[in-house]
Design a protein around this nucleic acid. Structure first.
Lengths: 222, 222
DNA sequence: CGATCCCTCCGTAAAACTACGTAGGGGTAT
DNA sequence: ATACCCCTACGTAGTTTTACGGAGGGATCG
């Protein structure tokens, strides 16, 4: 009978206060609609990008943040980093379409409490939210496998790209050749090649197409 | 007082029967939830991919098909082509995340009655459905501009890829080299090269990264 | 049957990319 | 000042991709 809602008496007291972060109104509407009839979860706010999410959290503290990854202005990865820094205990559940390993690992290392793919059912989403609210971790089927596959060597290698490398990668992913990138950035082709080498080594990707794919998944282009 | 519902008396008789085609349960749930309270539109079925959509349409004729583009098994473009062929008058409203020109033009030329981006509001989606049901066309803001920009020269060039070419492109966009693709498909490296050449020529793209980007935009991968 | 398209494979040559190394200059942190 | 990282650039070598050409077998359609 305390005022403070603790995980164990959640179902009989206040619902879980959820902040919804996704740039697609349709997706937000959908999730909101699903939770409207649900007494365990209450959507107390929506945000269209990471920046709005941070603003909202600073005003009304939600219990859980449900976060899309690819968004304009500030993407889910950055937003999660900030959130983790500002509110270390606030659970962030990632809602994403992508199931690539590098992607997920990066987010988990950043501090996400869970990761669900957008092809989950509503019911599974509810379970995931409840789980992270109670301090646990939740990962969709398939996601967890990937995490534990290459965890050992992956945890220390995945290095962040330097700003310049990111620029080169962006151009590359748009379909430019080394020569074109060199012209655009006004540097030598050899330098572009060097950057490309370093990128490939850091990401452990070995084809131009693979790099393009990675860049797009990261939201670096288009 | 006729049994047959005509566009003009829609609001006082039977609601618009809608088929929902999207591979993400969350999106389907969301749209369905939005229309549950709406008496003008009734979701009479859902499909996770183009094949299922065709199957459903052949059994229960919906008034409008709301179709996502990037889906496994059979994507929205193919499905729309088939639908247009089988049921020339059935309105197909495309619901997509992508706003690239080639993309939209291809779909419109295929026979889609409308094209809305996934960042529309629910209300706009309702208007779009009503519009195409009544025989009109509906395009999100921004989309229509693109359509009329480069309409002239674009209408005759963009050739469709053959199934085999699409398969090769898919592998390529996942980051595989020609050698790896050849092994995977059990064909010669030279054949893969030929396919790649033909793809590049058809799409007028000249780098592996560009092809990967195109494939991802088309929803061929991940 | 002829025409056409698709898939398969090859030759040749140039261009681009990959892989590994080295290295100087500039900035920054300790 | 020393160490470290980033950006720049080059050498060399091998591999892959790009670009152009031709060609045979199989399926389909008129």
């Amino acid at each position: 009978m305390t005022e403070q809602a603790s995980p164990s008496d959640r179902s009989v007291s206040a619902p879980i206060k959820l902040l919804l972060v996704d740039d697609h109104p349709l997706v937000r509407d959908g999730i909101r609609a699903r939770f409207e009839a649900d007494e365990l979860i209450e959507v107390i706010g929506e945000a269209q990008n990471g920046q709005q999410a941070l603003d909202f959290v600073s005003q009304k503290m939600p219990d859980v943040v449900l976060m899309d990854v690819s968004m304009p202005v500030m993407n889910g990865l950055e937003a999660t980093q900030h959130l983790r820094h500002l509110y270390p205990t606030m659970p962030v559940l990632i809602l994403s379409m992508h199931d690539s390993r590098e992607y997920i690992q990066q987010l988990v290392q950043t501090g996400a409490s869970g990761y669900v793919l957008k092809d989950v059912s509503s019911d599974e989403l509810v379970r995931a939210i409840q789980t992270v609210y109670q301090g646990g971790s939740y990962f969709s089927a398939g996601v967890s496998q990937m995490l534990f596959q290459g965890q050992v060597q992956a945890s220390e290698q995945k290095q962040a790209l330097t700003p310049r490398e990111e620029t080169v990668l962006r151009h590359l992913a748009e379909g430019s050749s080394n020569k074109e990138i060199a012209r655009a950035l006004d540097i030598s082709v050899r330098t572009v090649e060097t950057h490309r080498q370093n990128i490939k080594q850091k990401l452990d990707i070995h084809t131009a197409a693979g790099l393009a794919r990675y860049a797009i998944e990261q939201g670096l282009v288009s």
